[in-house]
Design a protein around this nucleic acid. Sequence first.
DNA 1: TGTTTATTGTCTCAATTTATTACAATAATA
DNA 2: TATTATTGTAATAAATTGAGACAATAAACA
Lengths: 238, 238
Amino acid sequence: MNKNRDLDLPLKKDYIPNLAYDSVIFGCNGEQLKILILEYHNTNLFALPGGFVKKNENLDSAVARGLRERTGLDHIYLEQFHTFGDTLRSRPEVMRTLLKANGYEVPEDYWLLQRFLTVAYYALINYDEVQPMPDALSDSINWYSIEELPPLIMDHSVIVKTAVQTLKGNLEKKLVGMNLLPTKFTMRELQQVYEAVLGEKLRRTTFQRKILGLDILARHEKLFSGGAHKAPYLYSFK
Amino acid sequence: MNKNRDLDLPLKKDYIPNLAYDSVIFGCNGEQLKILILEYHNTNLFALPGGFVKKNENLDSAVARGLRERTGLDHIYLEQFHTFGDTLRSRPEVMRTLLKANGYEVPEDYWLLQRFLTVAYYALINYDEVQPMPDALSDSINWYSIEELPPLIMDHSVIVKTAVQTLKGNLEKKLVGMNLLPTKFTMRELQQVYEAVLGEKLRRTTFQRKILGLDILARHEKLFSGGAHKAPYLYSFK
DNA sequence: TGTTTATTGTCTCAATTTATTACAATAATA
DNA sequence: TATTATTGTAATAAATTGAGACAATAAACA
């Protein structure tokens, strides 16, 4: 197999053992809430983007680093939501399969085949302003609607479900919705984000009154989209 | 020093390296929200109860095990709330101090002196029905009001603050309040728990109507306390 | 150039929820 | 039997939210 690719693999000596992180990276295309999913080379295996924590690196920094590598973006809204630590979540045979598919034959005691706990984060980014990049072991990274995910490896489906639940809960409490939009956005776009996250239609007038009442938005010029109707104002987060 | 106590120390081979857990164990005496704090032997150092995860043990099980050891209680309400992973949170000199104070001289590369990330949980228990027990390295474990904590080692004060914030947020969302009370309790006791957690007085009639309206309580016999007034009903969680 | 269409911003009134007050019931005591 | 402290619930006021109405307006069209 492809022995000269070994240098791509993370080295045991550089990382905290038995500990990983995974990121649920949310975007919204105006209709649906979506997340970024990796597809591993030659395997038909799908997974969340993730990585490992360097021995002298903050946990948060490690996740931000991985996110930068996948999205090219900096200063992303990022929030830790749960650490998954069941013994049964680790599936060495899955890891072995995807290493093999990439040309790596590893010994029985290879560090990546051990048990891993993972700290899960969710990130909110602007769907339209990102050019996602696959990692060393995967050949594609794509947006998937949270309603139509491919089967994910290990416990990644549970991680996604937990992320969606957490995001729902934080939407009104922490007002994180605008992180899924560009700096300036219309009230309708914001409402569409809320509807995609909550999974339900909202009443336009009530929504507008509530959001404006929070006094967190600054109003800017109008947006002339070319449509045959009144132009909406643009808003930004204060 | 006391070499024959070495057997009490956790052995590196049994545990996931670089990973710990800490528990913020809440109780309520009717007036104040309190937590259990350990005082280490001969050091004047105070800390949260915590421990390590065995190589083949679920994370949640490890925390439940530690909680059982400190409180003697089983089936405790337990919730993970954050994983703390900054490099600077680890303070090997603190660990060395408290090992020394207990008679343990350890080498420079001793595993407990390395960097540790910690998964933090909070637990809710009945203040009156627990006989807390100190761990191997500590000589006391006591209730402290969250308003009057002693100075805690490392980042344990931050962990406590985060726990209190999380508990506040979950009080109404997850209705966890009754876990701080015995099986049967009066409406006033429940209100006192809410007031202690939220840090504010609540209106009696509004509180009673809201809680009863949730339809989560079963009403039982009255409690005759001996006071010169109408006796309140006892309630339990449905 | 007026007319039409789709959408927006805001207002009004109804429905619901929450806050506040009031008050009768009652357990022990004097 | 009156007094005291507290409880359960009802009644009313205030605030919030739901639902509809409507004028304003940007572009297309006749």
